[in-house]
Simulated assay, not measured.
Amino acid sequence: MTTNPTVMLVVAGLLRDEKGRFLLQKRPPGKRHAGLWEFPGGKVETSEMPRLALVRELAEELGIAVGLPDVGPIAFAEHDADADGPAIVILLYNIERWTGDPLSLEGGEIGWFSQGEAMDLPKPKLDRDLLEALIRPCSQASPA
């Protein structure tokens, strides 16, 4: 019997403005993936449900309030464990509504980007995978 490797569960939010642009944040200096753009979110803590973790993370990182009914699953991406760390699974949730204006509260930049602009930004692989899943029509999805 083999044991499963440790998996880090991460949540991220897809926020769109009235023009349909995506909100992305830049990782601050000194953190892993510093200088790369990603969907806002963070790690799910032990015994925490993913949607609640995302509500907490968006409040901590962006200063916005999100209600649970406004959080819906939209995509996921995963990365196997390697020498740099554990396996990672990112769950991306669509955020229908929020209260407050998103602000960068943890030191990195934030910005609103069109789909094309977002694709051109330097991003960690899993955020690239999530963005590609959002823009790829279902008919182009490759079979498992």
Results as ranks from 00 to 15, higher is better:
residue 48 E to S: 01
residue 56 R to W: 05
residue 37 W to V: 04
residue 52 L to H: 14
residue 17 D to F: 11
residue 10 V to N: 06
residue 29 P to K: 12
residue 24 L to E: 11
residue 39 F to R: 03
residue 13 G to Y: 02
residue 22 F to M: 12
residue 73 P to Y: 08
residue 49 M to E: 12
residue 31 K to E: 14
residue 73 P to N: 11
residue 51 R to P: 03
residue 64 I to Y: 02
residue 20 G to Y: 13
residue 67 G to K: 02
residue 25 Q to T: 11
residue 73 P to I: 11
residue 16 R to S: 07
residue 10 V to Q: 10
residue 64 I to Q: 07
residue 12 A to H: 15
residue 29 P to D: 11
residue 37 W to C: 13
residue 42 G to L: 06
residue 21 R to S: 13
residue 68 L to E: 03
residue 6 T to E: 15
residue 17 D to H: 01
residue 60 E to V: 07
residue 28 P to L: 07
residue 26 K to G: 05
residue 37 W to L: 06
residue 47 S to T: 06
residue 55 V to N: 06
residue 17 D to S: 13
residue 37 W to M: 07
residue 13 G to K: 01
residue 68 L to T: 02
residue 23 L to R: 02
residue 53 A to P: 06
residue 6 T to K: 11
residue 14 L to V: 12
residue 57 E to F: 06
residue 57 E to A: 05
residue 12 A to M: 15
residue 56 R to L: 09
residue 40 P to M: 14
residue 48 E to T: 03
residue 22 F to I: 04
residue 33 H to Y: 14
residue 55 V to L: 11
residue 6 T to L: 14
residue 27 R to P: 07
residue 12 A to F: 02
residue 65 A to F: 10
residue 41 G to D: 08
residue 69 P to Q: 06
residue 23 L to Q: 13
residue 67 G to N: 01
residue 16 R to E: 15
residue 54 L to M: 03
residue 58 L to H: 13
residue 30 G to V: 06
residue 17 D to A: 05
residue 46 T to N: 00
residue 64 I to W: 00
residue 7 V to D: 01
residue 32 R to A: 09
residue 17 D to K: 10
residue 34 A to I: 00
residue 54 L to E: 03
residue 19 K to E: 15
residue 28 P to M: 04
residue 74 I to R: 15
residue 48 E to L: 00
residue 25 Q to D: 07
residue 19 K to P: 03
residue 22 F to C: 04
residue 57 E to T: 07
residue 11 V to D: 10
residue 17 D to Y: 09
residue 44 V to G: 06
residue 30 G to F: 10
residue 45 E to S: 03
